[in-house]
Design a protein around this nucleic acid. Structure first.
Lengths: 189, 189
DNA sequence: CCGTCAAATTGACACTGTGTCAATCACACT
DNA sequence: AGTGTGATTGACACAGTGTCAATTTGACGG
């Protein structure tokens, strides 16, 4: 395994285990078995490392293929459900890294841009699901298409997942079930 | 005006204007017209200052009296609406300070405890609204009472407000309207 | 008028964590 | 033997928080 991968894996594992911000560059270097300075030979800054780690996780977990079923769903409702399944179940996998990256948004422009990118990618998924509902005439008329997309986007945000599974103590299974139910209640005619 | 109040006011104004984390102890001191060291004579640490600032805002905006109408509401639905009105419209007022405090949760135990306290206070409000709905037999049977409370709590979280008014670009008026509507859709029979 | 107490000031310093730089080493490849 | 790559060590700059000591200022009471 090459050094770069070893670093990414170490960062991932540490961020998953510790409280995210408690993970310093030196900790990651130590876990990867190299010196702190060597880390900077691979990643110019902490933000770059975190961004690379999220990309690495997407690759490892193959988020693209997980999202595929929702894209080929027969109906709008089915598409909505399988999108929630795919993304909602991906969140716990990336949460550690995501938390660290979200925390950096305030101080680092690069991290902010990277996370905004991700956010927009999710939004596209939400938009597609809403469009599919609309095509089926299954979309509630209470909201404009943009508003419906915004609502789904909000329900599926990492922050919402964090709140429900963390502060509220919901299990992952409960989270997926109830989120699906709520999405239908709010968005479907 | 005594120094302590001048400090709190300066912190408030700065946090409201700047990006929250961009506000350093020295900035607040300068704005209050005292030296950075004098700040530490009044507040032992940054976390204490932020906590005191949120309490100050509660006092200035008299959150208690704003919450009163929801407590005396005639029906469950009315209680739900006026709770959303009161809290939802309080959020933008406290957002600057809240953001700084939320950011400190990761690194500071005291800040974490203080914010958790606030969170629980909101949850009590949510719980009371749900109970009022239940008493009216207006509560949906799709969720347990705890789950319904959790959902309302999540909808009314600062993060959700941040996402809808920030990332989604909703106006405050839209936010209040749509939040009320969603809450009814999801929670009412 | 003097003493005292509280609030504030100045300046220096410790600590943590990020990021940089220079000199050096080890090893593989040709 | 020579070259380049990746790593190492050690030192350092910088920002921001929090601490400490010595000193000043102003008000108030005896």
């Amino acid at each position: 395994m090459d050094t770069r991968t070893r670093i990414l894996k170490s960062a991932w594992k540490l961020l998953e285990a510790e409280g995210a911000n408690a993970v310093r560059m030196g900790d990651i270097a130590k876990a990867a078995g190299i010196s702190r300075q060597a880390l900077y030979l691979h990643f110019p800054a902490r933000a770059d490392l975190l961004i690379a780690t999220t990309r690495y996780l997407d690759e490892v977990y193959d988020i693209e293929s997980k999202l595929a079923p929702s894209r080929t769903a027969a109906s709008g409702l089915e598409r909505l459900d399988s999108f929630i399944d795919a993304w909602g179940n991906h969140i716990p996998a990336i949460y550690g890294v995501a938390k660290a990256l979200m925390a950096m948004r305030d101080t680092d422009d690069e991290a902010d841009a990277a996370w905004t990118d991700r956010l927009n990618a999710i939004r596209h998924g939400c938009e597609a699901a809403i469009k599919a509902l609309k095509a089926d005439k299954a979309l509630s008329t209470d909201y404009s298409q943009k508003q419906a997309t915004d609502i789904l986007w909000t329900i599926l945000s990492v922050r919402t997942w964090e709140h429900l599974t963390g502060d509220c103590g919901w299990s992952q299974k409960q989270y997926i079930e109830k989120t699906k139910h709520m999405a239908r209640q709010v968005l479907c005619a």
